[in-house]
Amino acid sequence: MKQFKTLVIAAMMLVGGSQAINAQAKTAHVDVSEIMAKMPAMLDAQKQLEKLSATYDTEYKTMVDEYQGKLKKYEQEAATVGDAANETRSKEVQDMQKRIVDYRDNAQKELQTKESDIVKPIMDKVKASIQKVGKAKGFQYVFNSEGLLLADGPNITADVKKDLGF
Rank of each mutant, 00 (worst) to 15 (best):
K2F: 07
Q3W: 10
Q3F: 09
K5V: 09
T6I: 13
V8T: 12
I9L: 13
A10P: 00
A10G: 04
L14D: 08
L14W: 03
Q19W: 14
A20G: 09
A20F: 04
A25N: 05
D31N: 15
D31E: 11
V32G: 09
E34I: 08
M36P: 07
P40W: 03
A41L: 11
L43N: 11
A45G: 03
Q46V: 11
Q48F: 03
L49T: 09
T55A: 12
T55M: 10
Y56V: 07
D57M: 14
D57L: 14
E59Y: 08
Y60L: 15
Y60D: 12
Y60G: 12
T62N: 13
M63I: 09
D65H: 03
Y67G: 04
Y67C: 08
Y67R: 01
Q68N: 15
Q68L: 04
Q68D: 11
G69H: 08
G69D: 11
G69I: 01
K70Q: 12
K72F: 06
Y74L: 06
E75I: 02
E75M: 03
E75C: 01
A78N: 05
A79K: 12
T80A: 10
G82Y: 02
G82P: 06
G82L: 05
D83F: 05
D83L: 02
A84F: 04
A85V: 12
N86T: 00
E87S: 06
E87D: 12
T88A: 14
R89F: 03
S90M: 05
E92Y: 04
V93T: 09
D95H: 00
M96H: 01
K98A: 14
R104Y: 13
Q108N: 06
E110W: 04
L111Y: 14
L111A: 13
L111S: 15
E115R: 06
V119H: 03
P121C: 09
I122T: 08
V126M: 08
V126S: 10
K127L: 08
A128K: 10
S129H: 14
K132E: 15
K132C: 01
K132G: 01
V133P: 07
A136N: 07
A136K: 06
A136I: 01
K137Q: 11
F139V: 05
F139A: 11
Y141N: 10
V142H: 10
V142P: 00
N144Q: 13
N144A: 13
L148P: 04
L149G: 14
D152A: 14
G153R: 05
A158F: 01
D159S: 11
V160C: 10
V160A: 10
K162N: 09
D163L: 06
D163K: 02
G165K: 00
F166T: 09
F166V: 13
F166Y: 14
